[in-house]
């Protein structure tokens, strides 16, 4: 079991949350101007880093609100949790977790 710290509800079991993919994928300013390739890049191409990844999460079985998180894809550790729409915070310590 892993606890995820919901900004509204506090620490809750991971089973109450749903993963929402990579964060900070901005909708194109002018979608009509994109080529098919650029549109496909926007729709389907996502980062898959080994290490810190900025992700969207939703507390599906709780307050039903979205938030962003920096998560280490190696250790699963949540490094930072911040609001939807907020800028990605700078991490002081990006070393691996304790698990």
């Amino acid at each position: 079991m892993m606890l995820i710290d919901c900004p509204n509800c506090g620490p809750r079991n991971e089973t109450e949350f749903k993963f929402g993919g990579q964060a900070h994928v901005a909708y194109p300013d002018d979608p009509q101007a994109l080529s098919d390739k650029e549109w496909a890049q926007y729709l389907f191409y996502r980062k898959n880093p080994r290490g810190i990844n900025a992700e969207r999460w939703v507390h599906a079985a709780g307050c039903r609100k979205w938030f962003n998180a920096l998560r280490d894809t190696v250790t699963y550790e949540f490094k930072a949790i911040y609001g939807a729409g907020e800028a990605r915070p700078e991490l002081q310590n990006t070393e691996g977790g304790t698990r």
Partner: peptide, 10 residues
């Protein structure tokens, strides 16, 4: 009171 799950249902 909180929203959570019991027996895997909300």
């Amino acid at each position: 009171a909180i929203t959570t799950t019991v027996a895997n249902v909300p």
